[in-house]
């Protein structure tokens, strides 16, 4: 049994203050490059008020979003979430974004993703966790592979922005694979 499901080595997952969390999210969404790798939606700001409303919505069993805090600095640096939870199939998706640029490429996101996977497999009893990533996002793909995700398919040219067409890669990890890599 893990008694500290939300604490990793570099980060912890939390929901602390909707007001300050919303302020960070509203700041991060002005980073166009960040927004473009994050989602297929047109880059368009929600604003702090809207983010706050979303953060204050009552949680339900279909999605679980966390704020990611760097442990040493006690600083909000990104978010991670398990969503599209379909319990009847044991299937869900994971999404992650490291909003603070100076915390990218240093293992914080990978640590947060590991915590989200442990939550999905050990607490939600998922069979599989899936994600979508731009084929050009090499840093993210490396991190996902480190966590044990395998490539499952490519949707060719599904992303088209700023005159560039990019492939979108789907990746997934099964509980058995994750348990094998994380047994203790």
């Amino acid at each position: 049994m893990d008694n500290q499901l939300f604490n990793g080595t570099l980060v912890r997952l939390a929901i602390e203050n909707p007001e300050t969390d919303a302020a960070s999210l509203a700041r991060w969404e002005r980073d166009t490059e960040f927004e473009r790798v994050l989602s297929h939606k047109p880059v368009f700001p929600s604003g702090q008020k809207k983010w706050r409303e979303r953060l204050e919505e009552a949680p339900d069993e279909r999605q679980f979003w966390f704020s990611v805090f760097a442990l040493a600095e006690d600083k909000l640096i990104g978010f991670v979430g398990i969503f599209m939870v379909r319990q009847q199939h044991g299937d869900c998706m994971v999404g992650i974004g490291m909003g603070e640029p100076e915390f990218r490429g240093k293992g914080y996101g990978t640590d947060a993703l590991r915590l989200a996977l442990r939550f999905a497999f050990r607490e939600l009893n998922m069979h599989r966790v899936a994600l979508m990533v731009l084929a050009t996002n090499a840093r993210a793909i490396r991190s996902y592979e480190k966590c044990g995700f395998v490539r499952e398919g490519v949707t060719r040219g599904a992303d088209y922005r700023d005159r560039i067409r990019r492939d979108v890669i789907s990746m997934g990890i099964l509980r058995s694979e994750w348990e094998r890599a994380n047994s203790r």
């Binding site: 069993e61 279909r62 379909r86 319990q87 009847q88 607490e123 939600l124 009893n125």
Partner: peptide
Amino acid sequence: GGLWNALSSNR
């Protein structure tokens, strides 16, 4: 009739 709270992680 109905089924209630049927999509929890308790199955």
